[in-house]
Design a protein around this nucleic acid. Structure first.
Lengths: 335, 335
DNA sequence: CTGAAAGCGCTTACAG
DNA sequence: CTGAAAGCGCTTACAG
């Protein structure tokens, strides 16, 4: 059996209370007894049981993060930031996949509630009213990352999608493009996505350009395949496009693939711009010009907000809007 | 305060033992009392505290997985499989990043030990003797995934790297290539990587071909950047190469990028073949011909082995060697 | 079929 | 500075 605190106490000839005190370090203990305890810990190879500790402290030192999908680079990058922040403070992180599915999400929420995690990050999905209510009743600290909450006031981390799309579109216009297509979408047409659409339209308006019908396509998802089929459709239906702005990098790569199949070269015949700046943006040929969202930093920030709140450093609240930047690579040319 | 089992018991006019019994379901309880308890649970919105339960059962229903890096697609894909298997059985998964760092790995191991996770997957890294010993003393069920253990007998999941590289090389030879370069490596030159190198050499030998010196380059990592610099070096130093076999997809994309910079077209001037078949393999232009490792399935299997063992279905043991397949896309041409 | 009691491995007032 | 005791929220023999 694993040694317990009682074994250590017996071995060091002290009470369990004393062992506990030296292990937690925030209490005076005579140097001599301290050494004896530490010695016993060493000899027995004792590892305090965090489960028992959690039961007392009502803290599990665990954060959870829920994604619609865990295996894409978007999730991976965000997770990297969350994990780093958490580990730095001795917390571990549970990651779950909702699949965008109602049942599954609710099931996970119930599981996390029972496990008494200390905080939750709900990522890149719309936090439905039902979820918000469930979490609210639990008084579980929550941050929504790159998504929107049905309940106003939920702390949220995101970038300014409207303005980012505005900047991207203006950039394309600045490069001389006047006939620009756009691909956006997602399973539920998130507010995030419609903000990007607004930015696209506003940029046109402010530059005195009109968006011909048929140049904008709303897709069922943000993945590569969606970009391929959507790109093919867009290139087929809209005449004379010189550029396409896709609202995710995967979508943009799909467009590049569709263009390639039509015998169009990027950027010579068609410019393509993405959104996110995932690692794959620089791996593509040509390297993708895109709007950078600091996803690692956003993940890190979400975790830090939660941790600051849990550890009483700072109450949870407020929205953090991260700045985006345009990363010029080689998929857009000046016309 | 969160309601406890005592609150439920009081409300239903029964003992906590009875509440526990109806909640766990494996004990006869009169239908009437059962209903009363369930009603109280409902009214109080009671959620059993899994921490307390774990203290009793000595089971946390948690699996952990450690990667050198959490944000790449390799990890993401494996994680997808692990997460699905775990969730299906009511387990949650903690993911951690070791960064390939000794201190950090040991720190994580200590944390997981204290948290009393039920099983551990150690992924794509060499399990050093020191780690193996630490884990062994804990009697923590362990599976090494796509890596090798210093301690023989550790359950391991991987593919047959030697034979996969052999097949890939033979495929290239079969397409008429005779001057083939190879890029492999990683921070610690894992056995996995050297098996791939062996397969490369054996295929040449069996086809009566010799590998000229300078055609094989060992790199510091498997990432895109390594492929770019390594690819540039290889293309510079080895004359007349018609194909390059890279031991990861990212490496292969790096080679394509390096080739592009030298004005070489893939596959017209140079064929490139990768390893892994990550989602980005099909996103590249041209789509990458590669060796497919069923990473999702491997992750799923690793978790299932652990779960079967934990739940007493089947003792842990044995190695699982997954089959690889060659996925023909468009980065290799017949010469 | 159900309850009283002990116990899982810790921590924390309360005394001394 | 240190110990005895109670308690965190459950589960599980043991009786009845």
């Amino acid at each position: 059996m694993e040694p317990t605190i009682r074994d250590v106490a017996r071995r060091a000839n002290v009470s369990t209370a004393t062992v506990s005190r030296v292990l937690n370090g925030r209490h005076w203990v005579a140097e001599e007894t301290r050494a004896a305890v530490l010695g016993a810990v060493q000899e027995l190879n004792y590892k305090p049981n965090a489960v028992a500790r959690s039961l007392m402290s009502a803290q599990t030192k665990t954060l959870a993060i829920l994604f619609p999908k865990v295996s894409d680079m978007f999730s991976g990058t965000v997770l990297g930031g969350v994990e780093d922040a958490a580990q730095g403070r001795g917390f571990s992180v549970i990651v779950g996949r909702t699949g965008g599915d109602h049942e599954r999400t609710l099931g996970y929420l119930q599981l996390l509630a029972e496990k008494r995690v200390d905080g939750l990050i709900f990522a890149s999905e719309v936090l439905r009213g039902e979820y918000a209510e469930f979490i609210g009743r639990l008084r579980l600290p929550l941050v929504v990352l790159s998504g929107e909450s049905a309940r106003p006031g939920t702390p949220t981390i995101r970038c300014d999608d409207r303005q980012a799309a505005y900047a991207a579109t203006s950039y394309l216009i600045g490069q001389g493009h006047e006939r620009i297509g756009m691909l956006y979408g997602g399973p539920h047409e998130t507010p995030e996505q419609s903000s990007r659409l607004s930015g696209f339209h506003e940029a046109h308006r402010d530059h005195g350009l009109v968006v011909e019908p048929g140049r904008v396509l709303c897709l069922g998802g943000f993945a590569f395949r969606d970009g391929q089929t959507g790109g093919a459709a867009l290139l087929g239906q809209a005449q004379g496009l010189t550029a396409v702005f896709a609202s995710s990098d995967e979508l943009a790569l799909g467009v590049m693939s569709a263009a390639f199949k039509r015998g169009l070269r990027v950027p010579d015949d068609l410019s393509v711009m993405g959104f996110d700046d995932l690692p794959l943006a620089e791996m593509s040929l040509p390297p993708l010009t895109t709007v950078r969202q600091p996803l690692y930093g956003m993940g890190r920030r979400a975790a830090t907000m939660l941790l600051d709140h849990i550890q009483g450093v700072q109450p949870l609240g407020g929205h953090a809007i991260f700045p985006t930047t345009i990363v010029e690579r080689q998929s857009v040319r000046r016309v």
